[in-house]
Design a protein around this nucleic acid. Structure first.
Lengths: 269, 269
DNA sequence: CCGTATGGTTCATTAAATGAACCGATGGTT
DNA sequence: AACCATCGGTTCATTTAATGAACCATACGG
C-alpha cells in the first residue's frame, strides 16, 4: 500500500518552515512519522519516504534512539516510536491542572448519563482533548486524549469560540472552514449565528458535524480568573443525543461544569 | 536556585553519544530539558545551560516550535514543552494494548483493596509505569504513568526479573545495584534469593526498597503466547501493606492479573 | 540616565551533515 | 545452487548548513 507522502504528514498546508535548523526539522518529521505509523518502519522505507539517503536517516535514527525517542525492534530491525514520547507526554499532563480536578466529576457525569465524557482545553488556538471517560455502552465512543478537534465543527470547538479568547474566531475564520460532512456548518454567517445562540444558552451541540450520526454536547469550564479554561462534553449517536438534547443532560453537564469551575477557583454562579 | 547542569539531565551516566547527528542531539536534549522543567525557561537561560550561543538555541527552538514540540509563552517570551509531546504520547498509548484491557480490572482491584493500583510493562529493559488508578485514601499514592522503576528495587521490577526475559537479570546485574534506602536489596546474592522466592509464590513485594515507609506488591500478567506481558501492583504504606501482605490482597491481585491475562489471550490457569 | 538584563538577528567561518558507493546478510525465484 | 533484489548498516570525499561573535531593540532597576 502506498503510504501518504511523509513530508505532507507534518508540514501539511502550513507555509514555510521558517528559519530553523533543517537537521532538527528532519528528525522531528521522522519522529512524527513513526509515531503516526501503525507499524514499525524499516530504514530503507523511511529513506524513500523522506527522499534522503539511508546514511542520513540512519544517523538521525541513531540519535533519536539514543534518547529513547525511537526504538528499534530487535527482531525485525524496524523502527518504532520510543518510550520517551510517552514519558514526556505524561509529564506534560501535570501542567494541565484542569485534568486532575475534572476527573471525578467526569466519572460522575458519565455514571449519570451513561455517555462518554471528554474534557478539552485550548492550547495555542487548538482545541485538544485532555481526557476521556468511556461511556457505559458496548461500543466505545468518544475522541481519544491528544486529539485535536476542529474549532467550527465540534461541540468543544464551538464552546471555545463562544467563551474563549476574543480574537479566536477571527483567527479561525482566517482559513477556510473545512466541511467534514454535508451537514457541517462551513459558512461564516452560519457559524456566527450558531455562536450567538451558544453564548446565550451556555451549551453547544455538533450533530453530524464531524461524523455522520454522531453528536456531542459541550459546556464551558471557567477558572479562578473567570475566564474560559476548557470544556466538558458528552458524546453519542444522534439517536441518543438529539440535536436539541433533553433538559436532563444539559442540567447534568452544567452542574458538572460548575463543580469543576468551582474547584478551579471560579467564584461565579 | 541553581539548576542541575542541563546536559547531565539526559546523557546521565551513559557512555558516548554514539555516532549520530549532533544537531538533533542538541534539539532532543533541549526538548527533554524543557519537558522536565517545572516552569517555562527563557532563551538566555537555555543558552547558558547548554553552553551554546543564543543564536543556536534560538534556531533550534524555532524548529521545535514549528512542529509544536515547544511553545513560547506569548506573555513571558519563555519556552515551554508543546502540545505535540502530549499528542504523540497519547498515540503511543494505543500500542500498549495491555493498557486498554487492564483498566477496568485495575479499577475493580482498587475498589476491592482501596489501594492505588499501577500497571507496568517492560520496554527495552526498562520497567515503565503505564497506568495508575488512584487509591481511595486522602493522600495520593502511586507512581505516575511514564515513570521508570528500578529493576532490583521495586515490586514491578522484580516481577519483570522473575517472569520476564531470561537474560534480563544478567543485563540488570551488569551495572551496580543502586541502594535507594538502607533497606534496598543491593547485592547479587540477596536479589537472586529474592527472585527464587518470587518465582515460587508468584508475587513480589518491595518494603522500604525505593522509599522508606512505602511498600508495593506486584504480580505478573501474561499474554497470549504465555509470556510475561507486564505487571500490576498495589502500593501503600508499610503499615497498610506489610512486608508479608494479607492473603486477601494477594488473592485479589492474582485474580485481577489472571483476568487481564485471559483478556490478552492467555490460555493458562 | 546609565548598566545590565532580556529576546532576537546578522554574517563570515568552519564544522558537520550529507549521499554515492560500498559491504555483508537474508530470502525468494529461477 | 546460482542469481537477483532486497534489507540494515558503513565509509569517505564533498559542500552544505549549523554555528557563535557581535550586533540591535527593548525593558527593568537603582
Amino acid at each position: 500500500m502506498p503510504l501518504r507522502q511523509a513530508s505532507a504528514a507534518l508540514q501539511d498546508e502550513r507555509a514555510v518552515p521558517a528559519n530553523g535548523t533543517g537537521t532538527t526539522d528532519l528528525s522531528l518529521r521522522l519522529l512524527d512519522f513513526l509515531a503516526r505509523s501503525a507499524e514499525p518502519v524499516g530504514l530503507s522505507e523511511l529513506a524513500r519516504q523522506f527522499q534522503a539517503s539511508k546514511a542520513t536517516i540512519h544517523r538521525h535514527l541513531q540519535t533519536l534512539a539514543y534518547h529513547d525517542f525511537v526504538r528499534q525492534d530487535p527482531a525485525t530491525m524496524r523502527y518504532a516510536p520510543g518510550i520517551k514520547l510517552f514519558i514526556l507526554g505524561e509529564r506534560l499532563r501535570e501542567r494541565f491542572d484542569i485534568l486532575g480536578v475534572a476527573r471525578s466529576e467526569m466519572v460522575r457525569l458519565r455514571d449519570e448519563t451513561g455517555h462518554a465524557v471528554t474534557l478539552s482545553t485550548l492550547v495555542d488556538d487548538q482545541v485538544v482533548v485532555l481526557d476521556l471517560i468511556q461511556g457505559h455502552s458496548i461500543v466505545n465512543f468518544g475522541t481519544q486524549p491528544g486529539t485535536v478537534l476542529p474549532l467550527h465543527a465540534s461541540a468543544h470547538g464551538k464552546v471555545a469560540l463562544a467563551f474563549g479568547p476574543e480574537d479566536l474566531l477571527r483567527r479561525c475564520l482566517a482559513r477556510p472552514l473545512k466541511a467534514w460532512t454535508p451537514h457541517t456548518v462551513s459558512t461564516r454567517a452560519a457559524l456566527e449565528r450558531d455562536l450567538v445562540q451558544i453564548k446565550a444558552r451556555g451549551w453547544a451541540t455538533s450533530p453530524n458535524q464531524v461524523l455522520q450520526g454522531i453528536n456531542g454536547i459541550a459546556v464551558p469550564v471557567f477558572n479562578h480568573a473567570g475566564r474560559y479554561a476548557g470544556g466538558i462534553s458528552c458524546a453519542g449517536t444522534v439517536q441518543t443525543i438529539p440535536a436539541t438534547p433533553s433538559a436532563a443532560i444539559i442540567k447534568a453537564l452544567k452542574r458538572a461544569a460548575a463543580q469543576i469551575s468551582r474547584r478551579l477557583g471560579y467564584a461565579g454562579k
